[in-house]
Amino acid sequence: MSLAKPIATTREVTGIPTGRLAVWWVIASEIVIFGGLVTCYLLMRLNNVSWGDEASHTSTAAGATNTFVLLTSSLFIVLAHAAAEKKDTEKAFKFIWYTIGMGLVFLLVKSYEYTTEISHGYTIFKSVFWSFYYTATGLHALHVIGGMVIMGIISMDVKKGKELQRVELIGLYWHFVDIVWIFLFPLLYIAK
């Protein structure tokens, strides 16, 4: 029965397009998911001074590189959005794939980090700090992968000039993933 778009989808009582409104709600619910994890981490971290020593084994350089990568990817996706708004599908397509490329760089750095840490014995079982480290960054990495897959799918439509508003929607999500990393970076890497 998914033949035609329902009329409901085209209505816009709040003044915010339906897709964007839904993404805001997705982000609102994601804030509580990541925030819940970070709250747990903070509570235990503030009570365990020894976690500072554990944290000194994370690589600030790798973390900073990844922050740079994600910030740049955020720039690319917002440029893609700007291009999509001007109906410049070529450019939007290009910038979406730059963003995906940046996501890939992020994942490569991340896996290099994981490999080094695990080979030095800092596995998820080492202590609760490392459990949190792998859970938080792993959950974040899953979001990065998810975003990349969705971008890949969207880029195909964008190339044909269809559903251009989706560039903005995936952009919002991608910026949110970026913001999560902006907080994970000081929490896990800088504070020693």
Binding site: T14, G15, I16, W24, W25, I27, A28, S29, I31, V32, G35, G36, T39, L71, S74, L75, V78, G171, L172, H175, F176, D178, I179, I182, F183
Partner: peptide, 29 residues
């Protein structure tokens, strides 16, 4: 985070209550 939210996510020109939506999540936390 605020800069990314305001300029890249365009919250600076978004309807006011989107801020409230997101902030109520933070209040819950």
């Amino acid at each position: 985070a605020l800069m990314v939210a305001a300029y890249f996510m365009h919250l600076n020109i978004e309807k006011r209550y989107v801020w409230y939506m997101l902030i109520s999540g933070l209040v819950a936390l």
